[in-house]
């Protein structure tokens, strides 16, 4: 029974990884850049929610911070990142890595290195009893559902809205997109805005579930990255699956010995990389570039 429990808890955590990963994957899909500061933006959002919630309340904090994350993403893309995109593959990597260093250290200055968490009161302790030994926490369940909902929304957005189609078109061929009237720079801004918005959701839920510190950004990035690779590049549902597989691996690892949790996740990642480098659920042929 402890194993069922470990697997179920891992699966629920997987939703969180999928949340963190979906934005990373979207930004990469549209612009072919990897946002090395993705995890740091998540942690930034978590801290921002704490600060805003002190003056209003938790809901107010979330409602205010998430759109600001999207705006921040749009702004950074339009100002710094678009410029670096034209300068080859290295520049955006360097710039996002610099973002990562800057965000971590600004957070360190403002909030110190002490662990914090987003307080949710009773919400974090409530759970649904499935059987005698299996309980599902409300917060982990909400986290998982958030991962699924974000994936579904992104899927719908990309496939059935005009802006989503424009994103995919720009990903296929930016020049041709320009020729049908799509402003690439705006589209890139939108992609990063969505990316940071979802990173923000991930960060806030992360912050509700565990304690965090300014240095946690890279860990969040690594989990998101592993989810993307396990699931398969360029596939939304693959990313969700990758997150879940990673979560379950970590759950089982932790059950063996707490220190093995993260290591078990890494091992599954390596195994996928060696045995199935295209990922578990790769993008279909024809949809590929």
């Amino acid at each position: 029974m402890v194993w069922t429990n470990a697997i179920v808890q891992g699966l629920l955590t997987g939703g969180l990884y999928a949340l963190l990963a979906s934005g990373l994957s979207l930004i990469f899909g549209v612009m072919r850049i990897v946002n090395l500061a993705h995890g740091d933006f998540s942690i930034l959002a978590a801290y921002a929610v704490i600060s805003v919630a002190m003056h209003t309340n938790l809901i107010g904090g979330i409602v205010l911070v998430l759109p600001v994350m999207a705006l921040l993403g749009y702004f950074l893309q339009r100002t710094l990142l678009n410029k670096s995109l034209a300068m080859g593959v290295l520049s955006p990597l360097l710039i996002t890595f610099a973002f990562s260093i800057i965000i971590q250290n600004v957070l360190l200055q403002v909030y110190t290195a002490n662990n914090k968490s987003i307080l949710t009161g009773r919400f974090s302790s409530e759970s649904i009893k499935i059987s005698k030994d299996l309980q599902i926490g409300l917060l982990p369940l909400v986290t998982f559902l958030a991962g699924v909902i974000v994936t579904v929304c992104l899927h719908y957005f990309l496939n059935h809205s005009q802006l989503g189609r424009a994103l995919r078109a720009t990903s296929d061929d930016p020049m041709a997109a320009d020729l049908v009237g799509i402003n690439n720079r705006h589209i890139y801004g939108i992609a990063t805005a969505i990316g940071l918005f979802s990173a923000g959701i991930g960060g806030v839920l992360f912050g509700m579930r565990t304690q965090f510190a300014p240095s946690f950004g890279p860990i969040a990035l690594v989990f998101a990255f592993e989810a993307v690779i396990i699931g398969g590049l360029g596939s939304l549902w693959g990313t969700l699956l990758g997150g879940v597989v990673l979560g379950i691996a970590q759950g089982i690892g932790s059950q063996i010995q707490p220190a093995y949790g993260i290591l078990a996740g890494h091992i599954v990642f390596i195994a996928v990389l060696v045995l199935r480098p295209q990922g578990l659920l790769p993008k279909q042929m024809g949809a590929q570039k």
């Binding site: 005009q162 189609r165 424009a166 995919r168 078109a169 990903s171 296929d172 061929d173 020049m175 041709a176 997109a177 020729l179 049908v180 009237g181 799509i182 024809g286 949809a287 590929q288 570039k289």
Partner: peptide, 22 residues
């Protein structure tokens, strides 16, 4: 354009819909 530059991951219908972006 030269070489047509059709969006390869979009369907015929989607390519046309994107054409109406403006």
């Amino acid at each position: 354009p030269e070489g047509r530059r059709i969006f390869s991951s979009l369907t015929v219908e989607e390519n046309l819909k994107v054409g109406a972006f403006t």
